[in-house]
Amino acid sequence: MAFTNISIDPASLPQSGELALKPIHPSYLKVLRIVWFMLFTLLLLVLCVLFYFNQDWLQLIVLLPVISAYLLLLVFTVVVGTGSFRRKAYAIREKDIMYQTGWIFRKLHIVPYSRLQHCVLKTGPIERRFGLASIGLFTAASEVRDIRLHGLPQAEAEQLREWILQQIQPMQASEYI
């Protein structure tokens, strides 16, 4: 094949910035709230046990910073977690999959199917109660091994997994020289 190097107008390429992303299922916020509740209840229990066995810590100079740190962490987790949830969204394209996550630092990951090694469908006990699942997309990237799409309805997650695997499969026939 003769070597060519035709100039490409960026405007003619598929635009990643213009695509409307689909938010994840609203029930996932309930899953997050339940997880936060369990985690912070456990943390509170641990603190209570520690104070019970160390009675000399029950002074204002120790209690005040510990309670302040606990409440600060709780508020931060809920506020940032909720903000992050509202911005989680994804889009499926012909050649790749896009996933947006994060609030303070918003990240838009775009993973071509040709770079996917395998995918994992995961359902935790709380997610199962709300009929939700998550998909992990694995590439060979050494620093960020996988992208996880959370808060998908179970049926949709399974359909998405099948779709992704179908996209990976036909590529093997023509991929290698």
């Binding site: 090694q117 395998h118 995918c119 994992v120 469908l121 995961k122 359902t123 006990p125 695997l165 499969q169």
Partner: peptide
């Protein structure tokens, strides 16, 4: 199944791993 190695595992958190064998 269909050229993929499927592994299902997990007790509370269920994982379904699908690995195209060509990968």
């Amino acid at each position: 199944q269909n050229g993929q190695l499927m592994i299902r595992r997990g007790i509370l958190t269920k994982k379904n791993i699908s690995m195209p064998m060509s990968r």
